[in-house]
Design a protein around this nucleic acid. Structure first.
Lengths: 340, 340
DNA sequence: CTAGCTTTCCGAAACGTTTCGGATTGCGGG
DNA sequence: CCCGCAATCCGAAACGTTTCGGAAAGCTAG
């Protein structure tokens, strides 16, 4: 391994000055800096992260922790997140550590261990839940982190989120304006905040028009095609809805399948809107008929997440590191006025 | 952060002795060891990985490097690997670093950087190709690594592989014994060694029975349902095969679809065998008719891979760290004797 | 009683980096 | 000619751990 000392010797300077030259400190001659950098490159010098971390507290490593669960390895969302973040941090010269904990592990204990051994600069938190214990713990320990999503109430941490309430409000409004009264919701797992926000938006919008939410029209679960299919079949059994909002394009695919099986035509007998994360495996435009969506590519969240986390590590002010993005509605052909 | 010094002070011993106690060195009193461990646990002490790495050369971190490519985020295989390895290393108290490099990056330069900054103990290499430059580089730099798969020829590195040649040989033999003469192969991308081994097995087996391999019956590409579908359609165009071996259950799904579209019945008009990695999203028993396979769950490779890599890091002898597993054939209902 | 051994402990050095405080040089202004 | 200042540089300490070489104390055999 080639160290600072090697470069120093080779260029006839002290270790100190070489370090400062490479880190663009002010008190080193321009010409010297050039020479040092050149020589370092020539020797193939790479700073030793461990040594740097030890003294400066920065390692350039960030982590994402998730616990194992059945279906983890076929969770597209998870892939997209992991690949997107890893690549984004790699681009910034940082390292991304994926830690998949055992299902039975206490999640806080895992963070404790990871934080304790002090080789990580910060964490990316995904899929927050209400009163998320991870946020409590990391805040208390003053460990930098960024949340993909956010909690209702005070948010004194960096986050990037989309306006999930709007997603539901917009879709339900369009259904209502088209004359629909019985509107179904097939949502993600209930305790995740994004699902909650959508659920609340859905309820509030109905209530505003004097419609009570019918529990028989609301489903929460793992957002798969299969789940969409089963939920839709269930709804269609008795007193079926005329419109369904799906939290996911995959769910919508299941709804389409169920509708076809029941001999219902979209959108004549059943209107459908879904939220589209722009995942590579599910293209709403390829649906028959093309699926109307609220559109917000997941891939656009990696750059801000990476930026905010580095910001948090460097201690930048919170205000610059909170953003909620509003999706846009893309009308295709799965929404029609209710015929009576 | 609680350090060795804190534990030492709290227990009235030297830092040295505390370190030895925690690492189960021999020259520390049994009673002392107990006291130290207890106190360390009480204080929530976690060894600082950076400091340890700096002096002992071990960080307990291993990495897997892959470059971005279109379809990465929908590559089930990749995620199965990532999640499986991460969890397996986590179980062993190690950390797993996923590094997704940009497509345009020089892969060796990436390894150079990662090796150079000296925070990684070793690497897991997947999807080896012939004359793999990564293997050359890491061997030359004496960096520990383990290969998932192996290269033809001398193998002076740890690896875990399945007998890919056997996979093809076995399937083709069964086809031949059932009277088939025109046998197709839909394989993975040609330069990966596992695809090569299967291709060679396929060719050799045909040749042994005096059958020339027909280039029109061999397809290499990304192992997706779509690729299987297109390849099968192509084959079925003129002078179709009566049997097809698929390197993947996904491919087989595409073949089934193509056959159905062409009005061919499996297995009456077309026999199909596939290799089954036991991925969660593709169950050959759920096919109609159930798909006969060579069976070898991918998930069984993580424990040996993790074990061999830690072995390589600790400098254990090579002989214990090489294994090739033979899959087993599972007969279901997609293979029938050729009617004439 | 002593030599030698075992058991248990400890001080100090080392790993590669950053950073604090100070040192040296050269220059212009008085 | 000297003072002060800017521009460059450097030595040494520090981060938390492991490890080398030895030291102290207790015991046994002679």
């Amino acid at each position: 391994m080639v160290t600072l000392k090697d470069v120093a010797r080779s260029v006839g300077l002290s270790v100190t000055q070489v370090s400062r030259a490479l880190n663009d400190h002010f008190d080193v001659n321009e010409e010297t800096r050039r020479r040092v950098k050149e020589e370092a490159a020539r020797l193939g010098y790479e700073p030793n992260i461990s040594a740097r971390k030890l003294v400066s507290g920065r390692s350039g490593m960030v982590a994402l922790v998730d616990t194992k669960y059945p279906g983890l390895t076929s969770d597209f969302l998870f892939f997209e997140i992991v690949a997107g973040l890893s690549s984004e941090f790699a681009r910034r010269g940082m390292q991304f550590v994926l830690h998949v904990a055992e299902e039975e592990d206490d999640i806080i204990a895992v963070y404790q261990k990871l934080v304790g051994n002090g080789s990580l600069d910060g964490f990316v938190l995904t899929k927050p839940v209400e009163n998320d214990p991870r946020i409590d713990y990391l805040t208390r320990r003053k460990v930098p982190f960024v949340v993909h999503g956010r909690l209702p109430g005070g948010t004194d941490y960096p986050y990037f989120d989309i306006d999930n309430r709007w997603v539901a409000v917009e879709s339900v409004t369009r259904f209502l304006d088209a004359g629909h009264r019985r509107i179904g919701l097939i949502n993600g797992i209930a305790h995740f905040t994004y699902a909650l926000a959508r659920f609340r938006g859905y309820c509030d919008m109905l209530e505003a028009r004097g419609i009570a939410t019918d529990p028989a029209l609301v489903f929460h679960g793992h957002m798969t095609e299969e789940f969409g299919y089963r939920s839709a079949l269930d709804m269609l059994e008795t007193d079926p809805p005329t419109a369904i909002f799906c939290s996911n394009v995959l769910i919508a695919a299941g709804v389409y399948r169920a509708a076809a099986e029941r001999g219902l035509s979209v959108p004549r007998d059943l209107s459908v809107i879904a939220h589209d994360d722009a995942l590579p495996n599910a293209d709403p435009a390829a649906f028959d008929p093309p699926l109307s969506t609220t559109y917000s590519p997941l891939s656009e969240s990696w750059p801000p997440l990476a930026e905010y986390l580095t910001g948090a590590i460097e201690g930048r002010p919170l205000a610059e590191m909170q953003r909620v993005e509003r999706p846009r509605f893309i009308d295709r052909a799965s929404l029609a006025p209710l015929e009576r």
